[in-house]
């Protein structure tokens, strides 16, 4: 099963490589990884998507907790949560086909954020499946480039991961 692990860690040089090194050394897989500073500049927030049996994921969270720089973590998939991913996709488009792409994007609540002579770029956020579905509908057009941010997530309700 897929798990979304949200981690608060010290915003220090090398913390990211410790997490990445742990996954490669122990043979765990990382499907996506996002990291950015938080409102408290001394902390970073990392969202990590991994896949594995319950025992493997239990080990992953224990091993992560063991890293000295990890302050706290939560497996968001254990409770109700919101997950979002950002997609930027650049497709070939002429003046004739642009309207069609815009209509498609609107159905998915995306929008065109850049237009060139022969291309246009759509921005879309949502769950991974929604982004997949959108990319499916673009199959007939020529996709030039796809950029996905990886998943970010947050628990529903009052629950929060903070120090």
């Amino acid at each position: 099963m897929q798990h979304i692990i949200s981690i608060l860690l010290e915003n220090e040089a090398g913390a990211l490589s410790r997490v990445a090194g742990l996954f490669s050394a122990r043979g765990y897989n990382i499907e996506s990884l996002t990291v950015a500073p938080t409102e408290d500049a001394s902390l970073s927030r990392m969202t990590l998507v991994t896949r594995g049996s319950d025992t493997v994921v239990e080990q992953i969270t224990k091993q992560l907790n063991k890293l000295v720089e990890v302050v706290k973590l939560v497996d968001l998939t254990e409770g109700q949560h919101i997950e979002r991913e950002l997609l930027l996709v650049k497709v070939e488009a002429t003046a004739d086909t642009r309207a069609q792409i815009r209509d498609l994007a609107e159905i998915f609540h995306g929008r065109i954020v850049d237009v060139g002579e022969t291309t246009c770029t759509v921005e879309l956020t949502g769950m991974g499946e929604k982004l997949d579905a959108f990319l499916q509908t673009l199959r007939s057009t020529n996709i030039v480039e796809v950029v996905r941010s990886g998943v970010s997530g947050i628990a529903r309700g009052r629950k929060a991961l903070r120090t």
Partner: peptide, 8 residues
């Protein structure tokens, strides 16, 4: 003392 040793 190390939780990650347990049930590994």
């Amino acid at each position: 003392i190390d939780p990650s040793s347990i049930s590994k």
